[in-house]
Amino acid sequence: MTTMVATAPAERAAATRRRGARFRPGNIGVGIAAWVAALAFFFPVLWMFLTGFKQESQASTDPPTIFFTPTLDQFRSIFARDFAPYLINSLTASVMSTIFVIMLATPAAYALSVAKVGRWRDALFFFLSTRMMPAVASILPLYILATNIGMLDNITMLSLVYTAMNLPIAVWMIRSFLAELPREVLEAARIDGASLGTEMRRIILPMIAPGLAATALICMIFAWNEFFFAVSLTSTRAATVPVFLVGFITSEGLFWARLSAASTMAALPVILAGWVAQKWLVRGLSLGAVK
């Protein structure tokens, strides 16, 4: 990775010199500082993970219990308390909304970056501005609308809301991937008389497939973690995993081990997805503005 970033030989030489120069004892200090910070930031997550494998009596002790025999009791008891439907709802909402998002955003990003329809900049920035609109501004109409058409506590409704939430991120991310395609390939395809559909299917989609996968992963992360819409628009049938966790703030707030096991299961899919998608995370978080 260190040598691949630079392209021109001169540039590469400069980079090597710079990196070579950096290998000084001072970097041991940097390494130690970075490791201490990383462990401090990661510690609460680790603690949550560990507590989930404890018995309740070991979960809240003074001083904290560090050594213990792991048990799956808490995970079992959560599934015994009907955790599965919440998990399925979360999965449905994340996957469904992500499919919608990719289906809507890919053609739009194409129109805005490859075909460059009139006022494409305006359209791009319009999408971006919808992401900056606070959720509290639209929750009431969505709630009232959902009530009136009988779609309150409905997983499709929630998925549609998540689609709207993630659409700008997807349009901007996919646009940034399309912008990296070599122009000649697209032009060659068009001169060969490929129709738009063929051009899309045969040439563009295969080339941006990794980018689409990254976009999908980022969208799923946001949908899976979303709380405000979930807690406002669902109650029993369509409730997602974060809504399940709400149960722990009152009646079950004393069951730390069980609560940690539930939190671990809620958080783990996204932690793993995020680790995998690390390379793309910053592009997603900055809505495609930073690579």
Partner: peptide, 26 residues
């Protein structure tokens, strides 16, 4: 550049990935 930089980076981004509702409970 230091030993284990990519691991450090991975550990550091984790708080942002944890479901906020779960993090809050924790």
């Amino acid at each position: 550049k230091f030993l284990g930089r990519s691991v450090v980076r991975t550990l550091l981004i984790t708080p942002f990935l944890v479901m906020p509702a779960a993090a809050a409970l924790l």
